[in-house]
Structures are given as C-alpha cells and as structure tokens.
Design a protein around this nucleic acid. Sequence first.
DNA 1: GCATGATCATGC
DNA 2: GCATGATCATGC
Length: 450
Amino acid sequence: MEQRKYKTKAEVLARGQEAVGKTLGEIDKTGRIATGKGAIGTVVEESWFGYKPNSNPAPDFEEAGVELKVTPYRQTPRGIQAKERLVCDMLNYDEEYYKTFETSAFWVKCACMLLMSYEHRDGVPKVNFTIDKAVLFQFPDEDLEVIRNDWKILMDKIKAGQAHLISEGDTMYLAACPKGRNSQDTRSQPFSPIPAMKRAYSLKSSYMTQILRRYIFGDEPCEKIIKDPALLHSNTFEERFEEMLHPYIGKSRTELKAQFGITSIAKNINEILVAAMLGLKGRLASTDEFQKASIVPKTITIGPGNTIKESMSFPAMDFCKMVNEKWEESDLYNCLAPTKFLFIVFKREDDGEYYFRSIKFWNIPAEDLEEVHRVWQRAVDILREGVHIWKDSRGRNCNNLPKASESNVAHVRPHGVNSMDTAPLPTGGEMTKQCFWLNSTYVAEQIKEV
DNA sequence: GCATGATCATGC
DNA sequence: GCATGATCATGC
C-alpha cells in the first residue's frame, strides 16, 4: 500500500528528518503511546510513515531497502549511552543455519537502517520524548568483518546442537539476546532435542552507544587496535589480538618496561604494558573494539603455586531496584551476560619478578550464567523477605545473603569504602553496600588452562 | 588455604 | 567525592 511512497533511501531519509524536533505525542495519531502500551517503533511506522507493520522478513521500506529503527539513549556524566540493545529480527534456529550471511534474516532486514534517536529521561512521559536525529546507517567495513564472524559463531553453535548454550557474551557486536517472556520460553533446535531459549538478533547496547556517538552525534572515532580491516578477513579479532601480543609472552615486567620506556609504577601497570605491546596511544579499555564489544580488561596475578586470590567484583547492588527487576533485564545480567573479559595474566615467580604469561578472552558460559541467576534470585528473595543482619563476636556485621560457600560460581559480599558505607533496603533501614562477586576459585578455574 | 568482612588506594 | 580494583586480617 503506502510503502510505495518511499522508493529510494533518500525519500525515506527525507521523511525521517521531517520528524526531527517533533515529540512522540505529536507523531502518534493513535494515542497508544500516551497509554504506555504502544511500542514506539511501531507507532512511528504507522503514524509517521503511514503503513501497517507486518512480520515480513523484508525491511520495512522494501523497495528502498531500509529498515526503520527508533532508538533511545541517555545523557550520562560519561556521555551519551544507548539505553538498550537494538533488536533486529528473531533468530529462527531451524531456518538460519543453512543460509549465508547475505541471506540471513539479520542481513536481509538490517543491512541498511534509518536510525531515529530520542533522549530517554527517567520520570518523563513518553509522549514528551523528542526525535532529535534521523540518519541512514550502513555498517562500516571494519565492523562488518566482526559482525560476519559473530554470525558464524552463532551458526556454529546451532550446527553443533548447542543453541541452548548460546549467550550474548559469545559474540562481539551482533548478539543473540533473550526475546521470550522468561528463560522458560523456549524453541526447538535442529541438531539437539534440548529446547533453547527464544532469542533475537540484536546489536549490543555497547555497540549502539558507539554508533550513536560516532554517526549520530559526530564524535571523533576511538583509537583502533586493528587498523586495517583487511586483516580481519582471514582471522578473527581475537586471533589477531593474540598474534600481536605473542612476541611478548614470557618476558618479565622489568624487561617490558625497559623495552617500552615505561617508568610508571601505577597499579594498572599490566594493562599499560599490554597497551604498549599493541602500539596504542591511549588506554586499552578506550579502544574502538573494546568499547563496541564491551570487553573489560582484567589483570590477574598468579602466585608461585598457581594460586589466585582475587574474586571479581561487580558494581554495588541497588537493593531497592533489584527486587523489582526481571533477571534478563537486571543490572547484573546486563553487566555480565553481554560482556567479554580480557584476562591479562602475569605470574609472580620465586625470584619475585612478574612474567607476562598469557591473555584470554572469556565470557561466562551459559550454564554458569544460570548459576549466577540462581544466586541473584536467592539474594532478591532474601531482600524481599527482609535481610537478617547481626554482629559477630568481633563486632563485625554478618548477614544471610548468599555466601561463596553456597555456590561454585558467585556470592554476595560487602564492597564499600568501609562498613559505614551503606545503602537503603527495600524493607526499610540500611545495610553496608554489597555487590555480587565471582568466586576466586571459579576465576582460577577459568584461567587454569592458560 | 579458603571464606568472609573490611578497608586501602587510585583514577575519573 | 565517589566508584571500584586491589588487598588485608582473622578465624575456621
């Protein structure tokens, strides 16, 4: 019907740009946004572009080859951040694996997108949000190489009968995010009888943050680790990364500092050394690839007996917020599931010197994520019932939140400036700030092989 | 040696 | 000033 109005990308873009400066309330002719029920993208499609959304595999503007995406962001003290991942299309386990990347549901629909952005502000009614930009987005070559490999990783898991073990952290930019009512909402998979969670193709929110900053708000590009996209044609990002660091494996910290002319005695010296090995000017965590893929560098020092003392902490818990969260939308899930960690492993030998031993890209396996889910759920249940707090003989605080001895993977422990550093409880009163930790024994297990 | 509560220290 | 990576101290 009316799609025929938009025959070219330029026509779609022009119409999108006419919406800039308009509020969602002005755009919506159906009144559904005011009720809080209407999906914003659907309403813009219908009310602004004048056609009925369908579940057609083709992009919304089929003839122009453009998919419409309306995407929210937040202004934060650290700059603009995508509010959420961008969901592209369902991942049908039975249909996708035999396709090529070019014929995949993701690429057929989303190769070219009209991105319309608006700022989300907490406590402001949706009708008052204003469309502030409309741009045509096509993936830059260097991102596309990464995304092709992400797609291959997902297909390889389906072909191996492991669709139930897919998680968002498996991939860099293109992820398979949960898209069911909960983890019990499953689908069949072609090479295993085990049902797998309903999932959709999505672009990670970390990737969307960089897209918003670079292509919508015109920020300068971040420093790249892999400067030539052609290098990613035959090898993955992780392979190239390891290749660049390989010459330095086994060298001592003293030797490496001398080689790079680094005199710093900063605590994050190991991360600084890795940045130097890669020839970076800035920080490893600030690079284009690490930002887009949400890769977090973690330095791990192992003692002479191959021991690791450090547990891995996550941001302080918001006791009041988390009791109202759904696991798949919780702060902890969003911090852990889509994230990759780069373990930078140094070993302290008997001579007292630290040696660069290895690096490992790691994301939490699906089964262990489920275990964290259980720990999180118990913490939520305890907080709802009212957490018990008492003092031991030394006058230190004790509580009944999940302990390291109760799970092989995760626990809850204090993490504030000191025990007086407290946060409010949903049942009233306060307690010392706490956070989730991955057990030190679990972390040790994960890097055992490297 | 590990679990657990606590605090130091650094960088933004 | 705050968040958080890193580490300590004690007891089992």
